[in-house]
Design a protein around this nucleic acid. Sequence first.
DNA 1: CGGCATCCGAGTAGATACTG
DNA 2: CAGTATCTACTCGGATGCCG
Lengths: 142, 142
Amino acid sequence: MEIETITENQKVTSAKKLKKMFGHVDLRDADLSCPVRDVLAVVSDKWSTLIIMYLGYYPVLRFNGLKKKVYGISNKVLSERLKQLVGDGYLKRTMYPEVPVRVEYELSDFGHSYLEKLIELTEWAQKHKDCVLGNRAKYRNT
Amino acid sequence: MEIETITENQKVTSAKKLKKMFGHVDLRDADLSCPVRDVLAVVSDKWSTLIIMYLGYYPVLRFNGLKKKVYGISNKVLSERLKQLVGDGYLKRTMYPEVPVRVEYELSDFGHSYLEKLIELTEWAQKHKDCVLGNRAKYRNT
DNA sequence: CGGCATCCGAGTAGATACTG
DNA sequence: CAGTATCTACTCGGATGCCG
């Protein structure tokens, strides 16, 4: 017993969903036309994920605040990611034209919706990490 | 009306989950100690995702079969990803010592479990892609 | 057929310094 | 404070050729 058993039925269901998703898409432009890939690009990114998670934890953070939380990120990358995340609508950016300026970042509703998915995924990952690590250990005979 | 509304309650729930997840983790080694990140690494990868999805669609595929399906992937990367996916337990690799050899890849139960998560995420992405693309269009004034 | 070894080019991250 | 600019270093993907 390693993980919960996957029934044949579930497999078929998955296959059907996949068929609906890209069964009709020509293979050749699967990654060109795929907007999903595009959206998923955010998941892919280590820093973006951390930024979003920290903003789910601390509702509002400023640039240097984020920089402290997201340990190890450089100015450049943080600023890039923030711009991208704001541009894609995950974050809301509010600027207060004081002196010195104050800029606050927080999750948008869309960002929160995304965060929920991200948390689900993370929970799954935590539940199964031992499985992966176990497998990895077993194959440590290169 | 852009996306389903996120209630305050949901936000609080997310925050609590996050707290449980890494509230106790020291920031400094968040990405060192984080096994989740590790597991998530697979999601991050464009090719791995495609491989897993195609194997959810076609139950069994061989090297060159995969290469045809996962259009545009190079031998090197395919072989790397396969090795990694097999090593992490997502895929099962069966070799038939015929001449010429035949090697078949299929999803393990763990892989199927992962695929379900992946599909969920993809469905979410599809549902929200317009939102992202819309946002992106709005911010096209750099 | 099912890969692995090698080389090369492009993109990306990181560190540091500087500006409104 | 909230970034931008620049330079370097390194990784990663793609193409090609070879081997059991």
